[in-house]
Amino acid sequence: MEKLLEHLSWLARVKLCNYERKLLVNDIAKIMEFFNRLGEIDVKDVEPTTHVIELVSVFREDKPGKPLSLDKALKNAPSKEGGFFKAPRIL
């Protein structure tokens, strides 16, 4: 279970501290058991539902709207430079 949690924490890109790891290892086991209740029900030949309301794809006219100004788009960025978002290095 510890190994699974470590793997999930990496996949989700959420670092966990020791205290959280201890709690979540325990929780995952319990929540999995709770999820496993679905194993009791027969779903053979049942189609999955992803959307409850049947809608056809909606297209709107391909007209340009009014975009946010550069200032407004960058206003909430924790780090920026020369009109760009500044991201951490990739490598």
Partner: peptide, 17 residues
């Protein structure tokens, strides 16, 4: 990156994320 809190540490993308 685009909005919200960012941890104040140095490092590559994965580490900061």
């Amino acid at each position: 990156v685009r909005y919200g809190f960012r941890a104040k540490i140095d490092g590559d993308w994965n580490k900061v994320y």
